[in-house]
Amino acid sequence: MTKTRNAHLSPKAGDEQGVEYARLVRKAARGDRVAMEELLLRAQEAAFRFSFLVCGHTQDAEDVMQDALLKTYRYVGRIREPEAFRTWLYRTVRNACLMKRRRRVDEPAHMVSIEQGMPTGDGGYAAVDLEDPAKAPDEAAMNAWLGERLRAALRVLPPSYRIIVFLREMEGLSTREVARVTGISEANVKTRLHRARGILREQLEGA
Protein backbone atom coordinates (compact mmCIF):
# COMPACT_ATOMS: atom_id res chain seq x y z
CA MET A 1 0.00 0.00 0.00
CA THR A 2 1.18 3.47 -0.76
CA LYS A 3 1.67 5.76 2.19
CA THR A 4 0.22 9.22 2.02
CA ARG A 5 1.03 12.30 4.03
CA ASN A 6 -2.31 13.11 5.56
CA ALA A 7 -2.87 16.57 6.91
CA HIS A 8 -4.57 15.59 10.17
CA LEU A 9 -2.54 18.23 11.92
CA SER A 10 -1.19 21.49 10.65
CA PRO A 11 2.20 20.90 8.99
CA LYS A 12 5.12 21.12 11.35
CA ALA A 13 7.72 23.77 10.93
CA GLY A 14 10.45 21.28 11.87
CA ASP A 15 11.68 20.55 8.35
CA GLU A 16 11.81 24.24 7.53
CA GLN A 17 13.73 24.89 10.73
CA GLY A 18 16.28 22.23 9.80
CA VAL A 19 16.81 23.86 6.39
CA GLU A 20 17.10 27.28 8.01
CA TYR A 21 19.68 26.01 10.50
CA ALA A 22 21.74 24.48 7.67
CA ARG A 23 21.59 27.77 5.75
CA LEU A 24 22.78 29.73 8.78
CA VAL A 25 25.59 27.24 9.44
CA ARG A 26 26.87 27.55 5.85
CA LYS A 27 26.80 31.34 5.96
CA ALA A 28 28.38 31.51 9.42
CA ALA A 29 31.15 29.13 8.30
CA ARG A 30 31.90 31.52 5.42
CA GLY A 31 32.35 34.37 7.91
CA ASP A 32 28.90 35.99 7.83
CA ARG A 33 28.71 37.69 11.22
CA VAL A 34 24.94 38.25 11.16
CA ALA A 35 24.34 34.55 10.43
CA MET A 36 26.78 33.59 13.18
CA GLU A 37 24.98 35.81 15.71
CA GLU A 38 21.59 34.35 14.72
CA LEU A 39 22.92 30.81 14.96
CA LEU A 40 24.48 31.44 18.36
CA LEU A 41 21.23 32.99 19.60
CA ARG A 42 19.24 29.99 18.45
CA ALA A 43 21.71 27.58 20.03
CA GLN A 44 21.40 29.37 23.36
CA GLU A 45 17.62 29.49 23.18
CA ALA A 46 17.47 25.76 22.46
CA ALA A 47 19.80 25.18 25.42
CA PHE A 48 17.59 27.25 27.70
CA ARG A 49 14.39 25.50 26.61
CA PHE A 50 15.98 22.08 27.05
CA SER A 51 17.36 22.95 30.46
CA PHE A 52 14.05 24.40 31.63
CA LEU A 53 11.58 21.96 30.11
CA VAL A 54 13.41 18.64 30.12
CA CYS A 55 15.77 18.92 33.07
CA GLY A 56 13.72 21.42 35.07
CA HIS A 57 16.73 23.47 36.09
CA THR A 58 16.54 27.15 35.38
CA GLN A 59 19.51 27.77 37.66
CA ASP A 60 21.62 25.56 35.36
CA ALA A 61 20.24 27.12 32.22
CA GLU A 62 22.77 29.97 32.08
CA ASP A 63 25.69 27.52 32.23
CA VAL A 64 24.14 25.21 29.64
CA MET A 65 23.49 28.22 27.39
CA GLN A 66 27.12 29.32 27.73
CA ASP A 67 28.28 25.81 26.87
CA ALA A 68 26.04 25.74 23.77
CA LEU A 69 27.35 29.17 22.76
CA LEU A 70 31.03 28.24 22.91
CA LYS A 71 30.66 24.78 21.39
CA THR A 72 28.53 26.07 18.51
CA TYR A 73 31.03 28.84 17.82
CA ARG A 74 33.91 26.34 17.68
CA TYR A 75 31.91 23.71 15.78
CA VAL A 76 30.72 25.93 12.94
CA GLY A 77 34.24 26.37 11.56
CA ARG A 78 34.78 22.63 11.08
CA ILE A 79 31.27 21.38 10.31
CA ARG A 80 31.00 18.99 7.36
CA GLU A 81 27.28 18.31 7.34
CA PRO A 82 25.27 21.49 7.98
CA GLU A 83 22.06 19.42 7.77
CA ALA A 84 23.17 17.47 10.82
CA PHE A 85 23.68 20.62 12.89
CA ARG A 86 20.37 20.42 14.76
CA THR A 87 20.97 16.85 15.89
CA TRP A 88 24.48 17.80 17.01
CA LEU A 89 23.14 20.84 18.90
CA TYR A 90 20.49 18.94 20.89
CA ARG A 91 22.92 16.12 21.66
CA THR A 92 25.42 18.69 22.91
CA VAL A 93 22.82 20.43 25.04
CA ARG A 94 21.56 17.14 26.44
CA ASN A 95 25.10 16.11 27.38
CA ALA A 96 25.74 19.52 28.97
CA CYS A 97 22.60 19.10 31.10
CA LEU A 98 23.68 15.62 32.15
CA MET A 99 27.22 16.73 32.95
CA LYS A 100 25.89 19.65 34.94
CA ARG A 101 23.83 17.27 36.98
CA ARG A 102 26.72 14.88 37.57
CA ARG A 103 28.93 17.70 38.79
CA ARG A 104 26.53 18.59 41.57
CA VAL A 105 27.77 16.86 44.67
CA ASP A 106 24.98 18.30 46.81
CA GLU A 107 22.25 17.22 44.45
CA PRO A 108 18.90 16.59 46.15
CA ALA A 109 17.75 12.97 46.16
CA HIS A 110 14.87 13.58 43.73
CA MET A 111 17.16 14.57 40.87
CA VAL A 112 17.84 11.56 38.66
CA SER A 113 18.86 10.85 35.10
CA ILE A 114 16.63 12.47 32.50
CA GLU A 115 16.49 9.10 30.76
CA GLN A 116 15.23 7.12 33.74
CA GLY A 117 12.88 8.90 36.06
CA MET A 118 12.30 7.70 39.59
CA PRO A 119 11.92 3.91 40.02
CA THR A 120 8.72 2.88 41.75
CA GLY A 121 8.00 -0.20 43.83
CA ASP A 122 6.11 -1.92 41.01
CA GLY A 123 9.09 -1.89 38.65
CA GLY A 124 7.94 1.17 36.70
CA TYR A 125 9.13 4.76 36.69
CA ALA A 126 7.46 7.80 38.13
CA ALA A 127 7.86 11.37 37.04
CA VAL A 128 10.61 13.51 38.49
CA ASP A 129 9.47 16.87 39.77
CA LEU A 130 10.61 19.83 37.83
CA GLU A 131 12.21 22.62 39.78
CA ASP A 132 9.97 24.48 42.17
CA PRO A 133 8.73 27.37 40.02
CA ALA A 134 8.76 29.69 43.01
CA LYS A 135 12.56 29.48 43.12
CA ALA A 136 13.04 29.95 39.41
CA PRO A 137 14.21 33.25 38.00
CA ASP A 138 11.83 35.22 35.77
CA GLU A 139 8.97 33.10 37.08
CA ALA A 140 6.18 35.31 35.77
CA ALA A 141 7.81 35.51 32.37
CA MET A 142 8.35 31.75 32.25
CA ASN A 143 4.74 31.04 33.20
CA ALA A 144 3.49 33.44 30.58
CA TRP A 145 5.83 31.85 28.08
CA LEU A 146 4.78 28.25 28.54
CA GLY A 147 1.40 28.36 30.20
CA GLU A 148 0.82 26.99 33.66
CA ARG A 149 -1.34 24.07 32.51
CA LEU A 150 1.13 22.75 30.00
CA ARG A 151 4.01 23.21 32.39
CA ALA A 152 2.16 21.24 35.08
CA ALA A 153 1.26 18.50 32.59
CA LEU A 154 4.89 18.18 31.45
CA ARG A 155 5.95 17.85 35.08
CA VAL A 156 3.91 14.65 35.34
CA LEU A 157 5.68 12.96 32.41
CA PRO A 158 8.61 10.61 33.12
CA PRO A 159 11.80 12.39 31.98
CA SER A 160 12.43 9.79 29.27
CA TYR A 161 9.05 10.75 27.75
CA ARG A 162 9.47 14.46 28.38
CA ILE A 163 12.61 14.65 26.25
CA ILE A 164 10.77 12.98 23.35
CA VAL A 165 7.82 15.39 23.59
CA PHE A 166 10.22 18.32 23.79
CA LEU A 167 12.31 17.33 20.77
CA ARG A 168 9.49 16.04 18.58
CA GLU A 169 6.55 18.32 19.38
CA MET A 170 8.13 21.52 20.62
CA GLU A 171 11.38 21.68 18.67
CA GLY A 172 10.01 19.94 15.58
CA LEU A 173 12.71 17.30 15.11
CA SER A 174 11.86 14.26 12.99
CA THR A 175 11.55 10.80 14.56
CA ARG A 176 14.96 9.90 13.10
CA GLU A 177 16.58 13.03 14.54
CA VAL A 178 15.04 12.37 17.96
CA ALA A 179 16.39 8.81 17.84
CA ARG A 180 19.87 10.15 17.04
CA VAL A 181 19.77 12.69 19.87
CA THR A 182 18.48 10.28 22.50
CA GLY A 183 20.29 7.14 21.32
CA ILE A 184 17.16 4.99 21.18
CA SER A 185 15.52 3.33 18.18
CA GLU A 186 12.95 5.11 16.02
CA ALA A 187 10.34 2.51 17.03
CA ASN A 188 11.06 3.31 20.67
CA VAL A 189 10.73 7.04 20.00
CA LYS A 190 7.30 6.44 18.47
CA THR A 191 6.17 4.26 21.36
CA ARG A 192 7.26 6.78 23.97
CA LEU A 193 5.71 9.66 22.04
CA HIS A 194 2.42 7.79 21.74
CA ARG A 195 2.31 7.11 25.49
CA ALA A 196 3.46 10.62 26.38
CA ARG A 197 0.73 12.19 24.25
CA GLY A 198 -1.86 10.09 26.06
CA ILE A 199 -0.58 11.15 29.48
CA LEU A 200 -0.46 14.81 28.46
CA ARG A 201 -4.01 14.66 27.10
CA GLU A 202 -5.26 13.18 30.36
CA GLN A 203 -3.46 15.86 32.35
CA LEU A 204 -4.62 18.73 30.17
CA GLU A 205 -8.20 17.60 29.75
CA GLY A 206 -8.72 15.85 33.06
CA ALA A 207 -9.81 12.70 31.20
Binding site: K12, L146, G147, V165, E169, L200
Partner: peptide
Protein backbone atom coordinates in the same frame (compact mmCIF):
# COMPACT_ATOMS: atom_id res chain seq x y z
CA UNK B 1 -5.46 19.81 20.88
CA UNK B 2 -2.63 18.49 23.07
CA UNK B 3 -0.19 18.26 20.18
CA UNK B 4 -1.24 21.70 18.94
CA UNK B 5 -0.65 23.18 22.40
CA UNK B 6 2.86 21.68 22.56
CA UNK B 7 3.75 22.86 19.08
CA UNK B 8 2.54 26.39 19.78
CA UNK B 9 4.55 26.48 23.02
CA UNK B 10 7.63 25.48 21.03
Amino acid sequence: RTIGLCRNAG
